[in-house]
Amino acid sequence: MIVGEQKPLEEIKAKVDGYSKILILGCGTCVKTCFAGGEDEVAMLALALRLSLKMEGKSIRVEEQTVERQCEDEFIKEAAANIADVKAVVSLACGAGVQMVASRFPQVSLLPGVNTTFIGILEKAGLFTEKCLGCGNCVVDLFGGICPISRCAKKLFHGPCGGSSKGKCEVNADTDCAWQLIVDHAAATGQLDKLAEYVPPKDWRSSQAGGPRKVHREDHEI
């Protein structure tokens, strides 16, 4: 899933300053799962904004809505009526959802309320960890299902660097060394010889280095 974190209340307050009525638009998929922008977070932010402004002697009318996904037109059109009624929308979607809503409803100011952080997993209750950079050419099969692109701070394809210590990364001692995990996995499954095979350098043209990417599925075009 895409993992994000809600922006600090003060930052969102500064963004909505001057508006008498806003809509907080949540997204019910990825950011809901990581507690950044689902229905509960929309309600919490609306309450916090109203109460905070009331404490300052100000008032704001805050409407709330959460759609299934802000990155799909089919879902965001459900918010059209509410969006037509405000001059600003605080979107609690990831960066993709925010831009989708901004392009669909250019007449309103789109204010992002979430910092999109990474593609990751729910490792355990309350802990989300990064697992993918979206590089466009997945090769985790070569590394025992462990991605050295997203999980090694140096994105090394050819074994651990000299900074790996006791299985931890020198960049962050709380982070497992991806290459230690790769070697441990290979040893445990009797595949150490696979690590001796030549892996060509990463071709970054499939990643963001080649500019914004598109996936075109003609079979789904109507």
Partner: peptide, 8 residues
């Protein structure tokens, strides 16, 4: 914590 931040 939120109540502290809000000022309540």
């Amino acid at each position: 914590k939120i109540l502290d931040e809000i000022g309540i």
